[in-house]
Design a protein around this nucleic acid. Structure first.
Lengths: 143, 143
DNA sequence: TAGTAGTTCCCCACTTTTCCCCACGTACTT
DNA sequence: AAGTACGTGGGGAAAAGTGGGGAACTACTA
């Protein structure tokens, strides 16, 4: 299970170190893709497969379904973890998420999220302020 | 499974390099055809067969069904992958999709999509803006 | 029937990118 | 205070993409 918040630097080649704890899980294969709220999602191969199978069932005759599948599937990329425990993020994903140098790696149960530091801070302060309101809505979703 | 976004150049002879990863799957035979949103779809022979069988079940008494079947079936073309891993795209498909020099190859699970670079960028910016809305709709479809 | 033109396919060579490995620095631990 | 673990940076080898020359094949024409 992925939890926690880590800060790492992207190097000039677009590589990002993964926190040590998570490397074992990711070493068997990992997939990065476009996420929501301007971040990237990083899944293990197994978790990715589950998601991809769901996406594949969307009917391509529906414009919205096509758009969503294109964002997630075409946005996805197999990434290997090198001997130093880093993943290479393709340019189009870095620019999508606006990743500069400082990147926040956040654990969210079955995925990691990669955020540009600035965006993360902004998002967090916003959410913290609204947390009471947000919580109220969660009731409807069964929490 | 086809995933990812790649950028390749059409050469003067109308040939397009296929990303290395996908060549093994496509080497047994591939089919290109007209796609939706102004791109081309590229299937393996097996996946194409499944789609063609579905298209064949469409009632030809419906004008829209006829038009759709014509678009996809009559637009289809067997393509071989040469020893350098390239496919030859017939002129009528290149002009249909408005392919110039820079082409984006996008993996969408069971098919590849071929886009003119410009169109792809435009489509993507549009979808990214709407992605949160789209995502909420996807929830209803069980994602 | 043979010649010519147009295509398709194969191969060679160049360029660019990717990936792998080594080395350094910093921070934490013992 | 020294050793170890982890994050960071960069150099070099290998692989993948690209472009063009030339052979084989077809089709059309004289």
């Amino acid at each position: 299970m992925f939890i926690g918040e880590y800060s790492h630097n992207l190097d000039e080649k677009g590589r990002l170190a993964v926190p040590k704890k998570f490397r074992a899980d990711l070493s068997k294969g990992a997939v990065v893709t476009r996420g929501l709220d301007n971040c990237l999602f990083l899944y293990t191969k197994i978790e990715w497969k589950k998601l991809a199978d769901k996406l594949a069932t969307l009917p391509f005759s529906q414009a919205k379904a096509r758009a969503f599948a294109r964002l997630m599937l075409a946005g996805a990329m197999d990434v290997g973890v090198d001997k130093q425990g880093r993943v290479m993020l393709p340019e189009y994903l870095r620019s999508f998420a606006g990743l500069k140098k400082q990147v926040v790696v956040a654990g969210l149960y079955n995925r990691l999220e990669l955020w540009d530091q600035k965006n993360w801070e902004a998002y967090k302060t916003k959410s913290e302020k609204e947390s009471e309101n947000i919580a109220e809505d969660m009731f409807e979703l069964g929490i």
